[in-house]
């Protein structure tokens, strides 16, 4: 320990950030929300692509149903389209597990 040590300590700690900094916390939360939004958009796009592909790959089958069963299939197709629109929206708010449980409760009350 020399007489220079206090000067060194003072110089090293001279430009430290404050103990409380609300602005920094706000900036962290802003990044946090941006990251969450990006994840949610990516997940929604992925789910939409998968559902679109499934519908596209099964298009001949769906078309066959339309021809064979008429009105009944139209109702089913409408319900499927509604689910395709609703599921990504639900995924934004909830985890996939919550969505599956919610749909299960809705279909089998």
């Amino acid at each position: 320990m020399t007489d220079l040590d206090p000067r060194l300590t003072a110089a090293l700690n001279a430009d430290n950030p404050p103990a409380r900094d609300a602005l920094f916390r706000v900036k962290v939360l802003e990044r946090f929300e941006q990251a969450r939004f990006r994840r949610q958009v990516a997940r929604t796009i992925a789910v939409s692509i998968v559902l679109g592909l499934v519908a596209g790959l099964n298009a001949p089958l769906i078309e066959g149903w339309f021809v064979a069963a008429g009105e009944h299939v139209r109702i089913t197709a409408f319900a499927a389209a509604a689910i395709m629109c609703v599921v990504p929206a639900l995924l934004i708010k909830s985890s996939p597990g919550t969505v599956v449980r919610g749909l299960g409760r809705w279909l089998y009350p």
Binding site: R7, L8, N13, A14, D15, N16
Partner: peptide, 17 residues
């Protein structure tokens, strides 16, 4: 010039930095 720089002389701060 940082907000809490008064505790150490400017020369020391610059030299240490």
């Amino acid at each position: 010039s940082p907000d809490n720089a008064a505790a150490a002389p400017m020369e020391d701060r610059l030299a240490v930095r």
